[in-house]
Write a protein that binds this DNA or RNA. Structure first.
Lengths: 338, 338
DNA sequence: ATTTTTTTCGGAAACGTTACCGAAAATTGG
DNA sequence: CCAATTTTCGGTAACGTTTCCGAAAAAAAT
């Protein structure tokens, strides 16, 4: 039923040259005459010949596939990162197998197994929120398969990581709140065990002590990642009659949840409490007041990650795991400025 | 450098059986003794043998890859659809190659070519906003490669389509506005040449005439797809001193743009103008007032699309292109109810 | 016990490439 | 003009499976 594909052998028969010369013509080998190459390529074009990638990959013992595991496909962040990866991988002739761990450690392991089975040339991963044990990843590296982590990563993994300079920008974000006049600032943090969370907490603390602001651990609350998590955290604070004059949330979704609850309880943003988000999302300009946040070069992160993978793939020797830190920008909107 | 993979030949040597029996053991063939199968499988497990997919695919002349082309990866819609597809494809051992056309016709053609080159077993596509000519797709079908379209499709394509019952739900959405008391309703439409747009317009018209409401073509405005497009359309209306008492927007983003501009100009939603969106997005509950909209089983659409592809793949004979219409639900929030 | 049937297996040829090893042809050097 | 070199090419064996064909072994029938 399917139209038969023309192969290198067909070409060989038609052109009366050996299959090896045809292969040579397509692979820019040196030991072929320019005229014969032109002849072959021309005829190939004419007959619509396309090299069969499966055969080539079998012979070369590669798959030209890169496995990508992300915690989720919803939200704007990961799709945008992936979109950045696509740009560089498609240029280099690689294809992406995109899998979601759905924020579950168990599923994450499953996905890794799947990718191993399908013999991808490399694996790119951003950890699920549940992932604490990274032994499997390190075993993976042991077997020789290139691994790159991004955004949600873990210092114990002996692989390159591409991350935002969370420490620096958390510091600057907090500083922004302080300069705007906040004294009693709370930090809504991501799950503590995520390194991304730790780095932002450090930045927050540093800013607070730098300006001699009161800062104890009660002001740093492990909230989660969703909008609902942000709501809950805020609700608990209000029930305890605690209303900060500034909130630095570790994600836009947490920040928006906080704003919603503040407003529902009659507090005004930014007058009563200024709120700062992190990692720009499309939601930031929809909420009222519009959310100040730290924008991140999300697509850039995808590109850098993909480029790192290409480097691993093309290098003969094992590279020392490198950490690339990307810079953001503070986007001031109405939620922090009266 | 890379750890050598154990092959069927290694197993053959170790177990002292032929390669064909091993292959038989793994493929549930009938002509093999239960004990030998068990023996083989056990040893394979022990040595961590995994069939090489490239070799298998070359032999079977398939790739176990499905190409997927979507207009964009940002926004919640397409990632969610893809997430639905993933569920069924990963069950069936297929992998997805996800490519984005970035809403560009030219890029779309490029992507199709890429997928042909990589010899995917089937192609799933949702058209870019620019796509009017679908000859390439029909040629593709001619060559025998299974094609399934979803959401943004085109009646000229001779392939199955999985769509929402846009006509019906546009009708019901408009009806909802009418029942809530609107008389002068405007429809912010997607680009007219998209069939999805046409169907919703028909639904809108039908509802208006059914209730004997005044409805001329000026009330149906080709707006675009983005939030910015929604803002522009609303702005133009207001500049003409036209303020409808109801707006049915063909996407949540258009609706939110409209709401923003209405509010900026001192109009109240829903008191002065009720606004109805279409195709639930995460933005709907962030905007104030929260947006009434037509929710769609987005993930379900992905599943159904993938299942249709599997059917094409597994069927020997060519199937008559079928159209599957999915139902939605009207979600009433504050933007349409006082 | 011999023939017939069925079950179980091994050998070898595919699948479409690339890679290696020579050999023929063309070029150079003396 | 012949030898030495270089360029260009063909033949063939991989890569790791599956599939087909036929043969051996086991079971059933006579």
């Amino acid at each position: 039923m399917r139209a038969k594909h023309i192969t290198i052998k067909d070409l060989s028969r038609i052109l009366n040259v050996s299959v090896s010369t045809i292969s040579r013509a397509f692979n820019d080998k040196s030991d072929i005459r320019k005229e014969t190459r032109k002849l072959v390529l021309q005829k190939a074009m004419e007959l619509g010949y396309r090299p069969n990638p499966m055969a080539r990959n079998l012979q070369k013992q590669i798959s030209k596939n890169i496995g990508i595991i992300v915690p989720e496909l919803i939200g704007s962040f990961f799709p945008l990162v992936i979109s950045g990866m696509e740009e560089v991988f498609s240029m280099k002739g690689y294809q992406m197998l995109i899998l979601s761990s759905y924020e579950s450690f168990e599923k994450e392991l499953e996905r890794i197994k799947t990718l191993e089975d399908s013999m991808v040339d490399g694996i790119i991963i951003s950890l699920s929120r549940e992932t604490k044990n990274v032994d499997v990843l390190n075993q993976l590296i042991q077997t020789g398969i290139p691994l790159v982590t991004f955004n949600r990563t873990n210092p114990d993994i002996k692989a390159p990581r591409i991350i935002f300079d969370d420490y620096k920008w958390a510091l600057l974000a907090t500083e922004h709140l302080i300069i705007e006049g906040c004294n009693n600032i709370y930090h809504f943090a991501l799950p503590f065990h995520l390194s991304i969370s730790k780095r932002r907490i450090e930045g927050f603390k540093k800013a607070m002590t730098k300006y001699c602001k009161h800062c104890n651990d009660l002001q740093i609350i492990e909230s989660g990642i969703s909008l609902e998590d942000g709501r809950k955290t805020m609700q608990i604070l209000i029930e305890q009659s605690i209303v900060p004059d500034g909130i630095f949330a570790s994600s836009d979704r947490l920040a928006i949840g906080a704003i919603q609850v503040l407003k529902e309880n009659g507090y005004k943003v930014p007058e009563d409490c200024r709120v700062m988000g992190f990692s720009e999302s499309t939601l930031a300009t929809i909420i009222e007041p519009q959310l100040s946040t730290v924008t991140q070069p999300t697509k850039e992160m995808g590109k850098k990650t993909a480029e790192m993978m290409i480097r691993l793939l093309e290098s003969e020797v094992a590279l020392e795991p490198e950490t690339i830190k990307l810079n953001g920008k503070i986007k001031v909107r109405q939620s922090t400025r009266v």
